[in-house]
Nucleic acid binder design. Structure first.
Lengths: 112, 112
DNA sequence: AATACAAGTAGTTTTTAAGATACTTACTAT
DNA sequence: ATAGTAAGTATCTTAAAAACTACTTGTATT
């Protein structure tokens, strides 16, 4: 790691994991990497997430400007979530995570 | 993301985050990227972690074969933790996380 | 008038992660 | 004999994340 201040570099890991960690955030971001998705689309692909949890996570991601919410139709109300311009910067990180995970399955899945 | 099965690729995000996520695991792995460290060294650099939490996290990382524990001296007992050969594979991922975090501080730190 | 749908909200409960505090073991040094 | 050190363990409590269940709003359909 060729970072000037190593201690600070390592602390930042915790901050990034606040954004991408937890049970759902990483997955939500991963799904939005491909293309925008509606609330219920997300709810379907994220098997077993509840409405309230999904709402909470999306609000958080909006607050930190990773995701934006756009009402695309008033009636029936249709809402679309997409990565912000800034949020797009997470794509490579997500990709790295997915690649590592697929390559190291036998261990990743150990817990099961 | 040029992964064959996208759904599966995304699910793996959750599994990887089990390994690297939480309040401490990412930081522990990051510290071990540089070189092996003793229990109390880790305890010192990980400001405010308790013994019991550190032990728990290290045992988990051992269980999944990311980290190995080596008694290097019986008395006074000295124990060293290091990444396994397999664990080394996480270095690039940690590096990517750190880099993203440093670059996007203004947002990462928003919560404070 | 009743039903359905999208996108939620509200309130409560359960589960999990992490923290606090105190103790332990095997030894060495004073 | 007492204190100190490294690396823990054992319990218990607290706090935070996620789940569960039910309800809401506005509109359109049968």
């Amino acid at each position: 790691m060729e970072v000037k201040n190593k201690q600070q570099g390592i602390k930042v890991v915790g901050d990034v994991l606040d954004i991408v960690g937890g049970k759902w955030r990483g997955q939500i971001l991963a799904h939005l990497c491909d293309n925008p998705k509606r609330f219920n689309e997300l709810k379907t692909v994220l098997n077993r997430i509840t409405s309230s949890t999904l709402t909470k996570e999306l609000r958080y991601l909006e607050d930190i400007k990773m995701v934006e919410r756009k009402v695309i139709q008033e009636t029936p109300m249709v809402v679309e979530y997409r990565l912000t311009k800034h949020g797009m910067s997470i794509k490579d990180l997500i990709k790295t995570i997915v690649e590592w995970g697929l390559k190291h399955r036998e261990i990743v899945f150990k817990k099961n």
